[in-house]
Design a protein around this nucleic acid. Sequence first.
DNA 1: AAATCAATTGCAACATTGTTGCGTTAATTT
DNA 2: AAATTAACGCAACAATGTTGCAATTGATTT
Lengths: 130, 130
Amino acid sequence: MKTTRNTTARTAVLEVFDKSKTALSHTEIQKQLNDVCDRVTIYRILDRLVNEDIVHKISNLDGTVKYAKCNHSHQRVHIHNHAHFSCENCHEITCLESVKPSYIMPHNYKVNEINFTLSGLCPKCLNSNI
Amino acid sequence: MKTTRNTTARTAVLEVFDKSKTALSHTEIQKQLNDVCDRVTIYRILDRLVNEDIVHKISNLDGTVKYAKCNHSHQRVHIHNHAHFSCENCHEITCLESVKPSYIMPHNYKVNEINFTLSGLCPKCLNSNI
DNA sequence: AAATCAATTGCAACATTGTTGCGTTAATTT
DNA sequence: AAATTAACGCAACAATGTTGCAATTGATTT
């Protein structure tokens, strides 16, 4: 079977996530890593982290893709059904762990996953900007 | 001021939308158009149609972008706050006009737009596949 | 500690998707 | 029919993501 290894690049990526309170794009991670490893390696590390359920992938409204570390230390099984907030001003994406939408589906659909993204102004920009 | 023109390419794109019951990607539209116009032209037409509120743009979970014609003939003001369903099997995206999530936001956020995408199996694949 | 094995990496090359500038074409107005 | 300018085609570019392969390195075994 495949075992996963703790490489320096992987550790560096995880450290970047720990330092950040918001979700990060591949490019943002690359800039913070400052040539620790190749561009391609970051893509592969992110793929692995997503598969291992350590990081989750967020597709934003504007087509950008970001990644955030999951905080599900206490949960056995982890479902990414929380909401994300995307700020139109500073473009930061934050997880709204507490926001879980309720909805009623038509019959004959089997829902496996939901993605709920809200956009607008985050508290920081709402206060400073107006 | 800028006026919008009814060109053959634009008409052709709108016809493709009318023929389709699901949301379409740029590539899908291009294939159906069969060299009616250039690739770039399709991008520009789609941009315009989105601006004119005739078509809405859907960013999918997997990062793909699709477009669908709005049906809001009867409404004065149109808000795209309905849900979309993305089938994991056939990859079709359909608008779930009736599904509107309810949710409670933390304070200090100003929500301007929401994107609610569900994925799983659509009725067609749910019946035929299993 | 050295050998082994496979997971991981770097590099180069490629694919896809979307954008921009500019000269030309054609839809609409007069 | 002529004038105006929105829309177009083309070429070139940019961003993002993928793939193949040889070299490297982390973990395990001897």
